[in-house]
């Protein structure tokens, strides 16, 4: 079992859903990222999603775009990123998932990148521009090394959901809204329907996590109620990082995470 699978199994036994907390690596610097992750872990996050910046993040809204731009301007490099992951891994056994774009892996070579990522402590990858049709080389390289977390959308057909779920491991990422990351639209009817549809098509064989625009404890509560196995909060964290002086960062992140996590635990 992978670290991610183990984590979901443990949570299931306690009848809890997973809180997946995001941070953009190196935004605005490495120490801030480490402080954020510490706050997230202490606050009860179950999985950490680490963003690695790409110059052209076409699935991301302004918050993650901006964080990525800052991180790149400060000199983000793949090699440095792996060193940061190692530092995090020295402190915690929490599952770490990498979110970036296909070209970052392709450029180094899928096998080499995944071997380096795994060695550093990464447990799974999310690539929003990797479609199932193009994923052959990526899947072969990832097999038995890291989980491959694919995305589905509210407009994905039932047949396609099944096909994507079969290629996915760790969890399946359901995009909540038509849009990029970080759009605050409130909880939509079609999203709740999509959760039910995806759960039905996957039949409990893989956990379903929901993300994009999930930013408040209320959002988390509603998605959990609709049947999501995990909720992913991203841009809302970046907003806190942006607004908080560095010495208060860990505690602010801790209390926000705690509020979110509460909604994934049965009363």
């Amino acid at each position: 079992m992978s670290r991610i699978e183990e984590r979901f199994a443990e949570l299931n036994q306690r009848d809890q859903r997973a809180l997946i907390a995001y941070v953009m690596a190196g935004y605005p610097n490495e120490e801030a990222t480490l402080a954020t992750v510490r706050g997230q872990v202490r606050g009860g996050a179950d999985i950490i999603e680490l963003g690695f910046p790409f110059s052209d993040p076409l699935a991301d809204g302004p918050a993650i775009q901006n964080a990525g731009t800052v991180s790149l301007r400060k000199g983000a490099k793949t090699g440095k990123f792996f060193n940061m992951v190692k530092r995090i891994r020295e402190e915690t056994e929490i599952p770490l998932v990498l979110m970036t774009y296909t070209n970052i892996l392709y450029r180094r070579g899928f096998s080499e990148f995944i071997a380096d990522a795994k060695r550093a402590g990464i447990d799974g990858c999310i690539l929003p521009d990797m479609s199932i049709e193009e994923s052959g080389g990526y899947l072969r390289a990832a097999k038995d090394h890291v989980d491959t977390i694919f995305l589905v959308s509210p407009n994905t057909s039932s047949a396609r959901i099944k096909r994507i779920a079969r290629a996915s491991s760790g969890f399946l990422y359901l995009v909540a809204v038509f849009g990029t990351t970080g759009v605050k639209t409130g909880v939509k009817r079609y999203t709740l329907d999509a959760i039910k549809k995806v759960k039905r098509q996957t039949g409990g064989r893989i956990p379903v996590g929901i993300g994009f625009g999930v930013s408040t404890p209320q959002d988390v509560r509603e998605y959990v109620k609709a049947g999501a196995d995990a909720v992913i909060v991203g841009s809302a964290y970046l907003k806190i990082i942006e607004d908080t002086p560095e010495r208060q960062l860990e505690s602010r992140i801790y209390s926000f995470t705690k509020q979110l996590k509460k909604e994934t635990v049965p009363d």
């Binding site: 076409l58 521009d129 479609s131 193009e134 995305l151 959308s153 407009n155 995009v175």
Partner: peptide
Amino acid sequence: GRFIPETLVP
């Protein structure tokens, strides 16, 4: 090929 977010596939 087609390296796109899933929302665009349909």
